[in-house]
Design a binder for these strands. Structure first.
Lengths: 131, 131
DNA sequence: CTTACTGTATTAGGTACCTAGTACACAGAG
DNA sequence: CTCTGTGTACTAGGTACCTAATACAGTAAG
């Protein structure tokens, strides 16, 4: 599926939420496809089921996943994508954080950009491999 | 000086630590220059003095700052820069996090790169303005 | 019906972080 | 010396997060 980064200061439930969104955005999870059960994914990620449940619940509220009680959880038929405004805002926020750390460790802009390109394609390839 | 982002999941003391490193990397804080006192910076950032103290202490241990007890805290004469290995590692880690969120919100690589370039120069300009 | 699997809810405990308040030792100015 | 401003240390309280252990309600298969 994907991995949890313990060193990432972001809460685990948020990493899971983002991971699912990523899979859907890359087509590794098609609309209508079933996602792992709360307990299965928790076991896979070495994490508490409650934490996965929290992420699934948020994704369901956001219209990304759809729950069939007693049966399982599935990707919504028409998964909600962030609107342009939200998307740009989130991206800009993340970009500022990244640029700030890049400067703090003494990196030039070119190096920062190179690393982003490399990381982007690496993440894409990683998901394609597991789909 | 710089700003604290409450929405950033990173601890405040870490944001302060990175902020000081950023100022030094950009030359806004020259070697030997005095940094604000714990209480002053805490007041400026609307934060508890203990939190600033924690950041200063870490920076002192890392050889970035130098303390003169009872007098104040100063930028070290030869501020320690992260070695290439650590720098690349930290940058790559940050790049993966950034690329992951960019993909999660449905952004293309080009947009992600554009935002980084924009953010980088914005951060630089922001610090130049206040130095 | 029984069994097994879903998502969901609740309670409890532990850790990290931030805040608040107080106190101490040191250096410089008046 | 007195006063003020340093960094440092300590205790206490609150919140967010993660974990653990149950329990409940719904669905599907045997």
């Amino acid at each position: 599926m994907f991995a949890i980064n313990p060193t990432d200061p972001a809460p685990i439930w948020r990493q899971i939420e983002e991971g699912v969104r990523r899979m859907i955005a890359l087509g590794a999870l098609q609309p209508g496809a079933s996602v792992p059960s709360v307990r299965d994914l928790a076991k896979d990620l070495r994490v508490n089921p409650n934490t996965v449940a929290r992420a699934y619940q948020r994704l369901t509220e956001g219209g990304v996943l759809a729950v069939k009680r007693g049966e399982g959880t599935y990707v919504a038929d028409e998964p909600v994508q962030p609107r342009k405004n939200e998307r740009n805002e989130a991206l800009r926020d993340a970009a500022i954080r990244y640029a700030s750390t890049a400067i703090a460790v003494g990196s030039e802009l070119e190096d920062a950009v190179d690393e982003v390109e490399s990381a982007y394609e690496r993440v894409v390839r990683e998901h394609r491999r597991k789909s």
